[in-house]
């Protein structure tokens, strides 16, 4: 599903973000990406969603060579990738239902399909009774569930979650983890989750890839947090 082969990425300011990285993430896997600030996690995500292209090597996601992807094709490619942010980024003037529907409207889906799928998604993220609420009326955990709902609305094959529990307390974080596991199982979505939450990584054990200074320093199939400090 996701293949990095000899990938390097250096920014114009001289920062070597990713260095000769090779890794394979299979379809339906749930992977943690951990590492300190500046270890290359953000660049890793940008390479997956097509925002950046590698200087060396190849990045293949959902059978697409992202580096060779024509610029105009990037939006269509991105429909395969759902992204969840730490700071939610819900549109404040739209209800939860409309926020989720927005992702489908943005790619030109028809109204009937949108309504059907949004109801399904609201059920999946356990927000059936919050569809008419505005984001400000929701708790942090509920807002993150709405964001996840928006990210999976278009049935992406890969879901990239950038510190989705970063702004939540441990109880809400576990709730989000259980939701992501459910999506991983029910929707067969491959999930790459960037996190700093040691407790979470140790509790919900998954394959864990640790980055440091652009290199993969550990790749543990059975999981567990590695402390870099």
């Amino acid at each position: 599903m996701i293949d990095f082969v000899g990938v390097s990425k250096t920014y114009p300011n001289g920062v070597h973000a990713i260095k000769n990285m090779t890794l394979h993430i299979a379809e339906g896997e749930f992977v943690y990406l951990i590492g300190p600030t500046g270890s290359g996690k953000s660049t890793f995500i940008k390479l997956i969603d097509g925002e950046e292209v590698p200087d060396q090597g190849t990045v293949t996601v959902v059978n697409t060579n992202v580096g060779k992807l024509k610029f105009k094709k990037v939006p269509y490619y991105r429909r395969n990738i759902g992204v969840v942010f730490q700071d939610f980024r819900l549109l404040p003037n739209l209800t939860v239902f409309e926020n989720i529907a927005f992702a489908m409207e943005a790619i030109g889906e028809n109204k009937h399909d949108i309504r059907k799928r949004v109801r399904e998604v609201l059920q999946l993220v356990d927000l059936e009774d919050k569809g008419r609420c505005f984001p400000r009326e929701l708790s942090g955990g509920q807002q993150q569930r709405a964001t996840i709902g928006r990210a999976i609305a278009n049935r992406p094959k890969v879901l990239v979650a950038d510190e989705p529990t970063g702004n939540l307390d441990p109880e809400k974080s576990s709730e989000i983890m259980r939701l992501l596991e459910r999506i991983n199982e029910e929707e067969k979505t491959t999930i790459v989750m960037v996190t700093h939450d040691q407790q979470l990584v140790d509790t919900f054990k998954k394959r864990t890839i640790a980055l440091e200074e652009g290199y993969i320093v550990a790749d543990m199939m059975k999981g567990g947090y590695i402390n870099h400090e």
């Binding site: 105009k72 939006p75 943005a106």
Partner: peptide, 8 residues
């Protein structure tokens, strides 16, 4: 967000 979800 539109760009993120793949709007052309």
């Amino acid at each position: 967000i539109m760009r993120n979800v793949g709007a052309s």
